[in-house]
Design a protein around this nucleic acid. Sequence first.
RNA 1: GUGGUUGUAGUUCAGUUGGUUAGAACGCCUGAUUGUGGUUCAGGAGGUCGCCGGUUCAAGUCCGGUCUUCCACCCCA
Length: 454
Amino acid sequence: MSSKPGLPKGTRDFGPEQMFRRNYIIDKIKAVFETYGFLPLETPSLENLSVLTGKYGDEGDQLIFKILNSGDFLNKTNQEDYKKGSKEFSGKISNKGLRYDLTVPFARYVVKNQNDITFPFRRYQIQPVWRADNPQKGRYREFYQCDADIIGTNSLVSDLEMVWLIHDVFKSLDLNDFLLKFSNRKILTAISEYIGEPGKENTLYVSLDKLDKIGKDNVFKELKAKGMSERSCVKLAPILEISGDNRQKLEQLTEFIGNLETGKEGLEEVSFILDSIANKENTEFKLDFDITLARGLSYYTGTIFEVKPTTVQMGSITGGGRYDNLTGVFGLDGMSGTGISFGIDRIYDVMLELKLFPESEIAGTKVMITNFDQDTLKFSLEVLNRLRRNGINSEIYPDKSKMKKQFGYADKKGIHFVAIIGPEEATQKIVSLKNMSTGEQQRLTVDELIGVLS
RNA sequence: GUGGUUGUAGUUCAGUUGGUUAGAACGCCUGAUUGUGGUUCAGGAGGUCGCCGGUUCAAGUCCGGUCUUCCACCCCA
């Protein structure tokens, strides 16, 4: 066990069975993305560190995997660089890193190709990302993100589309045990203004996000520890008491921040989403307007959303929101967009736990042809080729082993049919087809065989 | 990054206060059955006890380090 080669922390192999299921998820998501008019994009696994750093906050920067420069990189450094410490020094010996998410490379792409892109630009991207985080359940160092973004418009219609998109994706996966929480960053900004701590919304939302986890008292404790005054906390307390359905929550919140400019904007935006959703027919929306929803990434400026499974213990499986100026850091201002990211590794774990993968998706080969001897082989290969030309997943057992072994192979691989071609069948140009689940066996011509298996 | 936890056959796990040749179940291989799998029966193979070092007459068992697993924090998908 030990001497066998291992895997780096937080990475995994995906065997055939897992790949069938992963592809099932990816195919479904891709299909929905395409019905929404999103176009595919891929970017390199590697980006220049100048592109990656400074976009995810100090903590995020530390989680970026850095790639050592090629060649004699030490030759280009000196004792002074070394003495400045790891952070400075790593800048001298590494200038590339593995991508941390898909949004920043996308922003880079948009800026680089701004003259060729027709805006608003709708793209989807399904690729792995890497984070040097400590792994746990549902947390890996290499995992896939499925992103869809609409950039180049600040229309709320795009935000609304994201809400629909989320529902359509989970519907097509038959994953119904989820809750879509949403809110608006402007509301948080207004709240921090209202309680007399303008500009401190970052402190506020980091703590508020933990409300259901650590409780109200601890949130206040943490806020005070971060320098928020007693008076602000007193003003905040009644806002946290807001409850009821989405409409009721919105109305109660209006009493606090309805007179503030950003507050008014935020409330109107939330209201628009709620109204529009209500108009979409025949769909039950599990939408929860949650004031305490914050989302970590600092680039969000408007609508924000997050999806959590309701019956499985798991972090968020989807998240996103509106960003007003994502490309600003790359020198292109005024490019507003909205985006969503599905975490397929977590969706996989949830679906596995809820047993939502259909059996039929797991089968690979539909029919296996037996291998008798040199004389029958010619006809067997002929049949094999005809099956394949008719789009039937088929394989021939490569060795002239005992029937017992050949059948055992088909059984273990879950192959539903075995086509037996022995001397008798070969001379008559027929096959004996055995259904492995019922045990029934019938003699068929090749044309009949294709008919049965199509 | 901080604190804890885990590692023994392909898999899931036993293994006494440190003491002869490290066990079980399932899986795997062979045969009963030279044209038929999943059941049954008989037999068999398979282990550097994660890795490196230390204590000891003696280490799977005790100690240190390291890697890995899972968990909490931080943060996140």
